[in-house]
Structures are given as C-alpha cells and as structure tokens.
C-alpha cells in the first residue's frame, strides 16, 4: 500500500438524516433476510463512524437497536405499518452491528450481525406484575397448544390442509390458566377433511402462508381452543432466468423476502384474508 495519511473516520451525529438513511437500509436488510420470527423496526442508533473507502465511496460502521413488531416475517405488510411489540407483551429487542458501503449514492450492506433477546422478566414485572412472560417453544404445554390449535383450524377448513411452519411466540397466562401461542402455517397439497397422515402432505409450489394466534384454556376435564388465522396472498411461482436464455418455472425460494415476492401493483391488492375466530 502506498504511504499516505492515515485513514481516519468522520464522526456523524446519530440523528443525522444521512445516518438515519443508512440505518433504514440496515433495518430493511434485516427484514428481508429474516427466515423466522417477526419483523423488526429501528429503535435507536447507538454509534456511527464513517470511514473513507479506497478507491471510492465510504463505509458506514453502525450500531443500532431494533424492536420486534407484531408482523410475522411471512406477513407481506410493510414494516412501517407494523405495530411494535409493547413491554407488557414481553418485548424483544435486537442489537445489530452493520457495515454499509455508500458508493455513487447507492447503499450496500457488506457486514451484518444481529442478536435478539427478550426483555428481562424483572423489567416486565416492573411495568406489569401479572403479565404473561414468554415461554419456551419446546414446553409440553406449548407443543400441545399449537397442535390443538392447528387441528381445530384444519377441522373447520373445507379446503386445503395447513401444516405448521414454525412456532413464533408462546406465553403462559395465569388467569384463566391458559396457553397463548402464535405460529405460522403453510398450505399443502392435501384436503383437510381427507388427511389421514399429515406427514405425507407437501407444501404447495405456489406458496401460501398464514399466521395464527391461539389460546388454549384449561377447564376441568376439558379445554377450550380459540384460534384465529390470517392467510396471506399466495406467492406466485416465478420464472428464473437460465444461462441459455430460457426461463424455467420453479417454486419461489424460502421466505427470504415475502414482501418483495407478492404480485406487482397491477394485480389485485395484497389484502389478507382473515379466517376465524373459531372456537
């Protein structure tokens, strides 16, 4: 490397519009690369340094805090329209380090590392002593609640059988004693009324995802299952360009960016279909 003046960074205000622009690029990157859980939104910019980059451009070194929203990553709703998960619901924060290259006015993420963690039980208790806390997904009560809710949903379905994609949230409610769960589902090639072995059902090539919220309440000798599912618009099978110029139709890949893979504006609006509640 040629001798020259040492590279020094430029200090930018964390609330500077340019910093906020870069932070938004970072948050969009997070949400388009999340494979499970909920979309995140920007809460605070912790640090920013701007390094000159040879031969051209600048590297923004950024530390940001995010908060979980109530929109599942499979939900095509833009994150700007999603509600932030409140403290009383047991909030989850993200702590992220980013490096973003700005060159010719264009931003590109060159490094990203995020950790997410739920608020502490003590902090939740401070603002709400009786609020339910997050529960582990592998707890027998959670597993049972999800199975019962999915079975109830499919039992009411006159069409497609939906299979579980992931459990995304679970809480134990003290009074009445109940288990609250949230989970994602996907349409399969099976008919709900005819399924004998769910393991033989396969997700459709034209993916249709849904998001369910359920409460399973324990009663003496029985239980009540209340489940509400929102089905999202199908994600079309898109043609993939091939090296020889032909297009081959393949299923859209795993839910990397559901918002980007919904139909173009000329199609009907991406309205979600709300199904339920069913008890």
């Amino acid at each position: 490397a040629p001798h020259g003046p040492e590279l020094t960074y430029r200090q930018l205000n964390c609330d500077d519009p340019e910093t906020e622009q870069v932070a938004q690029v970072a948050v969009d990157y997070i949400n388009s690369h999340l494979l499970q859980g909920y979309k995140h939104t920007l809460n605070q910019i912790d640090k920013v340094k701007v390094w000159p980059r040879r031969p051209f451009g600048e590297i923004f070194e950024l530390e940001i805090d995010t908060l979980e929203t109530t929109c599942h990553v499979l939900d095509p709703t833009p994150v700007a329209n999603c509600t932030v998960r409140q403290l009383v619901e047991h909030a989850v924060e993200g702590d992220c380090d980013f490096r973003v290259l700005k060159q010719d006015g264009q931003f590109s993420v060159t490094f990203a590392k995020c950790d997410s963690s739920p608020d502490s039980a003590e902090d939740v208790r401070k603002v709400c002593p009786d609020c339910p806390l997050l529960a582990p997904f592998n707890h027998s009560r959670v597993v049972h609640a999800v199975e019962a809710a999915l079975a109830a949903f499919n039992a009411q379905s006159n069409g497609t059988y939906f299979q579980l994609v992931e459990v995304s949230r679970a809480q134990f409610v003290p009074l009445p004693v109940s288990t609250r769960v949230e989970f994602a589902v996907a349409a399969t090639d099976c008919v709900a009324k005819e399924v004998t072995d769910p393991a033989k059902c396969n997700p459709l090539a034209e993916k249709q995802y849904g998001f369910c919220k359920a409460t399973v309440t324990e009663k003496v000798g029985q239980e009540d299952v209340a489940v509400t599912c929102t089905l999202f618009q199908t994600q079309p099978v898109v043609p993939q360009p091939q090296p020889d110029g032909t297009d081959v139709v393949v299923p859209t890949s795993a839910p990397v960016d559901p918002a980007a893979s919904v139909s173009p504006p000329a199609s009907p609006p991406a309205a979600s279909l709300v199904v339920g509640p069913m008890v």
Partner: peptide, 27 residues
C-alpha cells in the same frame, strides 16, 4: 491587572452526537 480571556461558543447545552433518539422505549 491580569485579564481572563473570553470563552467563545459556550452558549447552550451541548447535545452528545450519539446515541441517538429512542423512537419507542428502551428495553
């Protein structure tokens, strides 16, 4: 007599550049 030099630019409170504003709440 010894005269103290004037202090320039000490008008308002200095806002630290970082961290930035909290948009929702601190966890």
């Amino acid at each position: 007599p010894v005269v103290q030099p004037g202090v320039a630019g000490a008008a308002g409170p200095v806002v630290p550049p970082c961290p930035g504003r909290i948009r929702y709440f601190k966890v």
